[in-house]
Nucleic acid binder design. Structure first.
Lengths: 328, 328
DNA sequence: GTGAAAGCGCTAACAC
DNA sequence: GTGTTAGCGCTTTCAC
């Protein structure tokens, strides 16, 4: 930066100002600096900048796993929006472990990030303490209903589960069953199952139960759960799945066994994945707007960075959408 | 760090040494330092560390999009392995744009990263110049066949395409067709199509062609391409898709139209996605080992960091696997 | 094995 | 609108 300053015949601090807020240096000098930067192939150091400013241009995003298409969507939207403003994404995966999340938060704080994004509202006591002590803006995504640390962007999963149950009941189904995958770890899927069960149990003349598999959501799990259903709950007339992949597997198993959907069995998923509108029959599902969660989180982070003095807790409900298709 | 040093009654440089190479301080002093760190809730600054060391604990990973399950897998594996060694992932998405990749590389260099991971072997001239000038280890993933900048980890996509063609021909198919999605941007999918076409054209008595759609791979694209096939190439007896999602959509469309797979039409995908073994019929596909690409890339990065003096270009072929299932 | 000293490349008051 | 000054919190020789 000193070399650039010298070449442009200004002081280093003017170069620094130009790089951070170009509007605040005069156009003529700005042009000279831009030239010098080009000539010298100058690459600014975010590391030095972060040290001097006591806050870096990194935003730490911590999700259970980017292999999960929902979080991949949100991470992608976040990086797109943050990137436009010169912020960079530091990515961490908890694999659904609070202990791992704690490690990742500790590491994140070592970067003096501009903000930290966490998934869900449940965190270890230490994580919460670290975060509160840090004064870094925190956004919790993909879950609403509890008390957020700071900002929360997401939706109510029990509501999504209840909406599915209501829909099936409204369609005249009586014997409902929920298919869960990895519920011991995936708290949000558990909330959906609870919303589903609770809504159905409060409806007259409806029987409802749940079966589950400990593995992550996949078509294979869906097939297995459908087989289990036929043994344990042979008179089931409607199935709600914690995930579209599970629903797809159930659908495949029905095809194999000649079970007609929706005539014999109604089927509902969650996620509106790439295949859900195109399968046979098209799958009724809940669209969770993972993109919107990402872009809203980014928007709030940028707002907070621009006007830190206006810091205030905030909760954004991104809603979900029940897409009724032929499977129910 | 000064506070920790004072509390532990040692010098700051001993604390620094303890943090970086704990084995090199005596156990007694190490214990004292550990205590002081705990008592003071000390969180080291990677930013200051990176500045002083002229290299940070960040590894920049630049992929087309983490929404693509293949790259999500690789990013996940990379972060897992790098995280174990205290390295952190800075994530960027090019959306298949070389210009965007260039911006991301420039930003990445501003972090003085321990390494940079890029997707594919094609990069703008400026990107290449920046990278070569930087002396940062570079790993190019998911593509082999060209001249890497430094380290490459991936496989030959033409070989994968050719393997699919050979397989179909060996099964007695004569009229082959390739379904492509987003080939104008996805160079690796294009390479697969080329390998497929080339292999088929070199075989006697085989006719082959390709149809494609500009949208990203999805089941919907697969359905549309199948419909197009029935109009343009009604006597096709084997279809290879650039992606399992496309194959799934084609399969759904065949179900709808009563086209029997594999009797009337053989179908092969690429990716071995979650549903591919479970659909009806199970889908013959190519498994690309995205996990292995990630873990191998991480291994080579760590090796390079440990012994920078032994720096040497390297090419790792992670191979692919043709999984023959009932769809062909 | 441990400590003293110098400085990594930038930002942020503040003065001009 | 531009320059001066004083660090930010660490790592890294090099002596001891």
């Amino acid at each position: 930066m000193n070399d650039v300053a010298e070449k442009a015949d200004v002081s280093p601090s003017t170069v620094s100002l130009y790089l951070r807020r170009p509007a605040e240096v005069s156009p003529a000098i700005g042009k000279r600096i831009a030239h010098a930067i080009d000539d010298l192939n100058y690459v600014p150091s975010f590391v030095a900048g972060g040290l001097a400013a006591a806050s870096s241009r990194a935003v730490s995003i911590i999700v259970p796993s980017v292999r999960n298409a929902f979080f991949a969507e949100t991470v992608s939207a976040l990086q797109l929006e943050l990137g436009k403003e010169g912020l960079h994404v530091l990515l961490g995966h908890t694999e659904y472990s609070e202990r791992e999340e704690e490690n990742l938060v500790r590491a994140a704080l070592s970067w003096a990030p501009a903000a930290i994004v966490l998934t869900g509202l449940s965190h270890s006591a230490v994580t919460q303490k670290l975060l509160r002590a840090s004064k870094v803006p925190v956004v919790e995504i993909w879950e609403l209903g509890g008390q957020p640390l700071d900002i929360a962007v997401g939706f109510h999963h029990e509501q999504a589960g209840a909406a599915v149950a209501s829909h099936l009941i409204a369609r005249g189904r009586k014997k409902l069953l929920f298919f869960g995958a990895r519920l011991q770890e995936d708290q949000r899927a558990t909330q959906r199952s609870e919303g589903f069960l609770h809504c159905a149990r409060n409806s007259a003349g409806i029987s409802v139960d749940m079966i589950q598999h400990p593995a992550p959501a996949s078509a294979e799990v869906g097939s297995m759960l459908l087989a289990q259903m036929l043994e344990q709950y042979p008179d089931t007339d409607a199935v709600a799945c914690s995930n579209d992949l599970v629903a797809l597997g159930a659908l495949f198993e029905c095809q194999r066994r000649g079970i007609k959907i929706p005539e014999q069995l109604a089927l509902v998923g969650f996620g509106d994945m790439s295949f859900s509108a195109t399968c046979n029959p098209p799958l009724t599902t809940v669209r969770p707007s993972g993109d919107l969660i990402g872009s809203e989180a980014a928007r709030l982070i940028l707002e907070r960075i621009r006007r830190p003095e206006a810091a205030a807790p905030q909760i954004i409900d991104t809603r979900f959408m029940l897409l009724q298709r032929q499977s129910s």
